[in-house]
Computed example of a mutant assay.
Amino acid sequence: MHIKTSNQEELSLGFGEYTCNWGVHICGLYETAEERDDIIFSFFHQGAKSNDKQLFSPAEQTAEDFTEKYKSRYPEFEHHILNPDLFSVINAKELYYSDGTFSPITMDENLEKFFTESQKFGRRNIRASAEMVWALEKIPGIEHLMAYESRLNYFISGKPWISICLYNITKFSGKTIMNVLQTHPYTITGGVIIQNPYYIDPDEWLKQNDPEFAIK
């Protein structure tokens, strides 16, 4: 089943026989590790088969555990996950708050550097995903996480990039999950992807909720 998410080329999500288009930001909502793994392993396995560049940030598991599980599931693609030019597995602290503070602006800059580097030798399709439970820690600046999520829609639009942000709904408050829904145009729940009716355009969401990070 195809979900039209942009005017870019199609890609297979790797699960449920779903396809969508590049340039999309999705939230994956789950309750168990099995549900989470059904999303991320299928997603990245399809990326390996397509030779996409991939980025994953684990938080509920270690980078080493994720890598070993991936190699066990897909031994024929061990070379893919062990090649840093193809697959980057970066822990949450290193990716989101390496200096001890979370900043949407710094994240924009770091992701833009990652994207620019990835495209140096021509178009590279990029699959990215992260386990977001790290955000439950008392990190300076974490109150602006949803501003980052909203701004990510600007960053991804028009790029050969797809991001799936993974939120464990048993650990986050209902208020936070509603903000997650308001900042992601598509959702995955129970293996089903849908256009999210609660999504608010970042121009409006940022103006209403965190105007400091609105695009001027």
Rank of each mutant, 00 (worst) to 15 (best):
I3E: 00
I3Q: 07
N7F: 05
E10S: 06
S12R: 06
W22K: 01
W22V: 00
T32Y: 12
A33S: 06
A33P: 08
D38A: 12
D38N: 14
D38K: 11
H45T: 03
G47H: 09
A48W: 10
N51A: 15
D52R: 12
L55C: 11
F56T: 11
P58N: 08
F66S: 13
E68L: 11
Y70P: 07
K71F: 02
S72F: 10
E78P: 01
H79F: 05
H79Q: 03
I81V: 15
L86R: 14
L86C: 12
F87A: 14
A92N: 14
G100C: 13
D108C: 09
L111S: 07
E112H: 02
E112W: 04
K113G: 12
F115D: 04
R124P: 07
R127F: 13
E131K: 13
E131M: 10
W134Y: 13
K138N: 14
I139Q: 05
I142L: 06
I142C: 01
H144D: 10
H144V: 00
L145S: 04
L145C: 04
M146C: 05
M146R: 07
R151K: 03
L152I: 10
I156N: 09
G158A: 10
P160N: 09
W161R: 03
S163E: 08
I164P: 07
I164K: 04
I169Q: 07
I169P: 05
G174I: 08
K175E: 06
I177W: 05
M178P: 00
V180Q: 08
Q182D: 01
T187F: 10
T187H: 03
N196Y: 09
N196M: 07
P202E: 10
P202I: 02
D203R: 15
D210P: 02
E212G: 08
K216I: 05
